[in-house]
Amino acid sequence: MVVAMNCYNVYVLSALESGIDIINSIKEDVKIQGIIGLKENAKHNTISGYVDMSKFCKGQKLKFVPVKSYDLKNQNDRQSILSLKIDILLVLGWQRLIPEWLINHCDICAIGVHGSSYGITLGRGRSPQNWSLILGKKKFSISIFKINTGVDSGEIIDTMSFTLSDFDDIKSCYYKTGLLISKMLTKNIVNIPNLSTKKQSETETKYLPQRTPDDGEIDWDRSTKEIYNFIRALTKPYPGAFSKFNDCKLYVWKAKPFELPLDIRENKTGEIIKIFHRGDLLIKTGDSLLLIEDYSLEPPDSKKYLQEGLIFSSCSFKEQMQKIIGRHMIKYTDQPIHDDIMELS
């Protein structure tokens, strides 16, 4: 069923591949006028999941509005957007706060998406899907909400949840959230003038801290399950979990627990126990073994250093978490971190 959306000027603000999946899912029900996206620039390639929206718009015959600044503070970007007649703005993959001038420019509202394993109110902030996988959570809730000037603090329009299995990684998690976001948008946007929303409680809020690529170093003293969760949380399109050796880096994209009663008591954690003919690596962890099935090396020619008995360096996960939490607490003094994250330090 195609909803009567032709009377509204709907624009999408997106810079991520996940936004394209959502747009493709809702375009038969919601008429989109155009997409506001980042202008092609080499530095944007460091954004996890970044995609050049101009190419997508060309193929879909959609108007593309390029902007230079991710934070939308560039004056030319501002004037370009203000020249648009926007009734509804769908923010689908824009990992920055939306400025007040843009929120006010929308005649009806700007709609954002956010979720966590604790819901939107107790899991505000950054990298919620990565944190859910790192922590081994079994459930994730995703909400669509009316954007205000706060951090994921707007009135909730709708919420749906799904199960996280041991086989999910960050990519499949994004696919799941994208499908539920699409379902909620098509369900609710037709009733946009009469939306029933729910205010979030501000008496108890919690936040998740930002992660950086350097936070992906592996602690081989942790259990196989913990390292497996860490790897699947940071795999593509993210920069990846990594380990150092001989001034080189091993980026791990896919791994799995490897149960076999081998006598590895004399081996060190992080040690390569076996290199199989296909190149897969069997590594000793803090409690058993991990099979690395897909990886890349930096520099590429460092494969010559990989040999059985090589011990990868190990980064203390506890110290890593202390740095992550410390950065957040210095920068965001009014945003208390969720207890589950604090306990990791």
Rank of each mutant, 00 (worst) to 15 (best):
G279H: 08
S313F: 02
I189K: 11
K284N: 05
V51C: 05
P257E: 12
L291P: 00
S345N: 14
S314W: 09
F167C: 03
C57L: 02
D334G: 02
I98K: 14
I192S: 01
A233D: 01
T197H: 08
S296T: 10
I47T: 03
H328Y: 09
S313P: 00
K137S: 10
Y70P: 00
H44T: 05
L72H: 05
R265W: 13
I103Q: 06
D215E: 13
K73P: 00
I35Q: 02
K85A: 14
F162R: 06
P257A: 10
I35S: 03
F312T: 07
W101H: 10
Q33M: 14
S116M: 09
K138F: 03
I189T: 10
V12C: 04
K331Q: 13
Y174Q: 15
G59T: 03
G154A: 10
I111V: 07
K55Y: 02
Y238M: 12
L289M: 10
G125P: 01
G286T: 07
L135K: 12
T186Y: 04
Y238S: 10
L195R: 10
R211A: 06
L282E: 03
I157K: 13
G119P: 02
I98W: 13
T333P: 00
C248H: 09
T163K: 12
F312S: 05
D214V: 15
R211Y: 10
L90W: 01
S201G: 14
I275S: 01
N76Y: 12
I32L: 03
I32K: 03
G123F: 13
F245V: 04
N24F: 03
I264W: 08
R278H: 15
K55V: 03
T149E: 09
D301G: 00
V67L: 02
S132N: 05
L179A: 13
D280C: 06
I81L: 09
N104R: 13
I156F: 11
F230S: 04
G136K: 09
A233T: 09
R211N: 10
M342G: 07
L89I: 07
C57Q: 02
C109G: 00
R211F: 14
K198R: 15
P213R: 11
R327K: 13
L260R: 15
K304W: 01
M160R: 15
L289P: 01
T203P: 00
S141Q: 07
T149W: 00
G326R: 04
T212C: 01
V51R: 00
K61T: 05
L195H: 08
I98V: 15
S127V: 06
S117N: 09
C248V: 06
R327V: 04
E343D: 14
Y175T: 11
S117V: 01
C106G: 07
K274F: 02
E298D: 09
N191Y: 12
G240W: 04
L234N: 14
K146G: 00
Y70I: 09
K268L: 11
T159S: 13
V151S: 06
D263F: 11
I23H: 11
D263H: 12
R78Q: 15
T235C: 13
H105C: 10
W220E: 04
L38I: 08
K303G: 03
S54N: 12
I275N: 00
I283M: 10
G34I: 10
G115Y: 06
